[in-house]
Design a protein around this nucleic acid. Structure first.
Lengths: 108, 108
DNA sequence: ATTTTATTCAACCGCCTGGTTGAATATACG
DNA sequence: CGTATATTCAACCAGGCGGTTGAATAAAAT
């Protein structure tokens, strides 16, 4: 499974997006991250593992505490993928026009 | 479940992204879409239903044939979501700087 | 009218996911 | 030392996902 798939699967879960949102405001320990959620610490720990697997967070262990830091770079993949389709909603282009624009041809 | 979640789940599967890629080049019937894939027609039909549920395709039934057309607009949601995080990989900003930029404060 | 074609529906299956609880591990604190 | 804290590991479970096959439906073709 490629990296884009990993990243998309990771961010497709609302709780994981919420975790990323939290982390985008600064690093935090696992317990801190889990605190506002209505689920067990273990569940959050699992979500963090998924995010880590997608490269969206980085973990620094200091003593018994794990400091989790957001790593936005993999989202570049998502941005790149979706960018290909921007022509389909920008400028009210219809599908066919977008197609020809894509191919670099003149409009029919 | 909100719409962004629907869209992200839909595009997180490689086969569905491949289907979207195909459809971005022009509409097609279900059988045509399924042809290049190494899976049953039924499986493709299910994938199309997921994409339809996310609003990423539109279906026009003409006789017994279903013409499937790509609808890029829901990808706007993805673009918008990921846009929030662009600062984390653009301009080599580190996390903290990005944080302060986000808040509109001066750098420390 | 019969047959072929396009598509979905329904049931089934194996596997993964997202959650739980309880134990294990490792570090910090008294 | 013994105990409390931070985190993960392991086992379990319900439910959904992605796939299959076979039947149903509807339209076209002969």
């Amino acid at each position: 499974m490629n990296n884009l798939t990993h990243v998309l699967e990771a961010i497709s879960h609302p709780s994981r997006r919420a975790i990323l949102d939290r982390l985008s405001k600064g690093p935090a320990r696992v317990t801190e991250i889990a605190e506002p959620f209505d689920m067990s610490l273990n569940a959050v720990s699992k979500h963090l593992k998924v995010l880590e697997g997608a490269g969206l967070i980085h973990r620094e262990k200091i003593g018994r505490e794990h400091f989790i830091e957001f790593t936005g770079e993999p989202l570049r993949l998502v941005s790149g993928w979706v960018h290909h389709y921007e022509q389909f909603w920008n400028k009210k282009l219809d599908r066919l026009e977008a197609h020809f624009k894509e191919k670099g041809r003149k409009k029919p």
